[in-house]
Design a protein around this nucleic acid. Structure first.
Lengths: 231, 231
DNA sequence: TATATCTATTTGTATAGACAAAAGCGGGTC
DNA sequence: GACCCGCTTTTGTCTATACAAATAGATATA
């Protein structure tokens, strides 16, 4: 516990730390790289390593496919295809996805049931350019998430979690009240810079939540107490 | 692209991969360790490395302190202390926190304003055993999250994100409608196995969301296409 | 059969050395 | 001033080697 590190403060160079702690530079490098990956320090060649300015609380959330999740919890998962339509991307969706309007898409809507009870509505857009095989796929037995997973690897994903009030259609499908608080997970996945799919999954708020853990894992590298945000 | 990996399938041992790809075992080890850290494979000494069973979509969410978040976005942050009371942990909260009932706690409730508008209600429990200094702190100028951060390092955190409908009191404070969908972030932090603090932060759903990114970063180690869940 | 012990395999981690890549810095030129 | 060039520092990464730690599987023992 040799004290706190102020944001922006420079950390001694690897070589110095190595001699100070009687270990090889590789070992120091590994430790500092781990800290950098966690966002606690920032490293720049020639400039050096610095305590990160915004000390952020990085939480790892395990966000799963509904069917997998149900399976793991030992529940039965089922789903119904409510809509399946080939369209062209309209202006508003194009802006949302940041893809050119007019691109051919497959628009899906389906209802997921866990243990026989409605658990989520999935509204999905699949870019047919990126996944041409989807054009002829009915998704009769395999849910779209699973099917896509087997067809297309993705290289980047972005998630957004929102609270929304159930509109009339959503409430009816999820067998809940209109205006009920729902948790919507929005996920967009990319491959080679192009969108593969965009999906909004809406869960009834009283039957769903997201959980995530964080532990530093690094064994207090170099005996310093590192600061963290948001307690 | 030598094909997919089936969950549970065994990966050749480091030594074999090293000779196959003409690199040192250290390099292989680093690559596989990175995959293991991402949860894509599971490694066990003597047994070997295996493709992870539940292929989970790990998303890193940066969950920040409200005041920090507002600052970063260039907004003005303010807050009002609504309640500050020393109590003893009752049975229901004890069960929630998994701490023994009767422990002395400081219960806080405050309202956060961003750019003058109500943005969140913070309901917090601070364990006075873990943070004795909190007993005499009025939190007049420094918000509890920031103050705690400076006082107590934590070693483990758990987050839960839920959608809830605003009750009458919440709606009034957040200047929104009763029943409005809200996003609640629950965070519990520990130090040495004991709870430091437990907090519920409720945001109006129309003014808040959580976002998280994921990219594999590993440059497709060993030319295999790894599977990932939930597209 | 159940249990303890040994052994070989596999991962985990540390080390010293080497070179590559990025980038800050200064000096020179215009 | 701006711009270019090369020097040097610092991080990034790989290699070969070595040993430690865990443990699956085989063997011995009760």
């Amino acid at each position: 516990m040799s004290g706190d590190w102020q944001p922006g403060q420079r950390i001694p160079v690897e070589h110095e730390l190595a001699t100070e702690y009687r270990c090889s530079r590789m070992t120091v490098n590994k430790a500092l790289s781990a800290l950098a990956e966690r966002g606690m320090i920032v490293r720049r060649r020639k400039a050096g390593s610095f305590v990160a300015a915004q000390q952020i609380d990085r939480t790892v959330m395990d966000i799963q496919d509904i069917s997998t999740e149900a399976e793991l919890a030992g529940y039965q998962h089922d789903y119904q295809m409510l809509m399946r339509r080939i369209e062209r991307l309209d202006a508003s969706d194009a802006a949302l996805l940041r893809e050119p309007a007019g691109a051919e898409i497959l628009r899906l809507q389906c209802l997921h049931l866990v243990d026989g009870k409605p658990n989520a509505i999935e509204r999905r857009i699949i870019m047919l350019d990126a996944v041409p095989l989807a054009r002829d796929e009915a998704f009769a037995s395999v849910p779209p998430a699973k099917w896509l997973l087997e067809q297309v690897p993705w290289s980047k994903a972005r998630h957004i979690i929102r609270a929304v009030s159930a509109d009339a259609a959503t409430a009816r499908l999820l067998e809940t009240e209109r205006g009920e608080a729902c948790l919507t997970l929005i996920r967009q996945t990319w491959q080679n810079g192009g969108t593969v799919t965009y999906v909004e999954i809406t869960h009834p708020g009283d039957r769903f939540q997201f959980a995530g853990d964080f532990q530093p894992a690094e064994k207090d590298a170099f005996d310093h107490t590192t600061r963290r945000s948001a307690t």
